[in-house]
Amino acid sequence: MRVLVAVKRVVDYAVKVRVRPDKTAVELQNVKMSMNPFCENAMEEAVRLKEAKLATEIVAVSVGPKQAQETLRTALAMGADRGVHIVTDMRADQELQPLAVAKLLRTVVDEVKPDLVLMGKQAIDGDNCQTGPMLAGLLGWPQATFAAKLEVADSKKEVTVERETDTGTQKLQMGLPAVVTADLRLNAPRYATLPNIMKAKKKPIATRDAAAAGVDLAPRNKVTNVTDPPPRAAGAVVESVDDLVAKLKADGLV
């Protein structure tokens, strides 16, 4: 069974982003970038499938600027066997949009022919939460979003996925190939060890030019303005529980 894992390079989750003074976008210069946290969950799950001898090969793919290669190296250090880099200079948080990314990923699926595509449930830059279901829709494959548990049948023809819902969890069964997007309870991603980081440097990464993929990359939804959210006025410190109760009562909240 071959598994394709899509990973995205995003502003590190711990960074407080700043809007650029010209209000066109957030500042990406000199900002720490990392693999999107949910892509780490997807990558980890693929490695576990390989360790369980269910997957035979893991291919990691990333769409992004030349630095996205670092994200692919991280994926290779976690356990991917090879990488595919779709190179583009378009900003992946607002200019290169989910539909275009899904279409680019479809070209990689056509080439790699995976039995299972794993990806994060959403990227924490654009917060669109669309690319996984879009890829499934383009391919006409079954989908399981927000996966909390993944079991591959011994036949390797079917998966059972427990997925998070608004009110609890739902268990689905679907034939392969399928697209599964990872939620945070799926697993605890490993850190790449130094020997594995060294080994990853020797693993192959194929590069493709996004513009040559035969996909319309133009954004359908034009971002015309990016601003800071309205600030919230700092409140008061209360000295005691009695004080707090009095304040809440005065406001008519309790």
Binding site: V17, V26, N221, T227
Partner: peptide, 12 residues
Amino acid sequence: PMYAGNAIATVT
């Protein structure tokens, strides 16, 4: 919102 609500985008 984008970036966990730390930026608000106007989209056409």
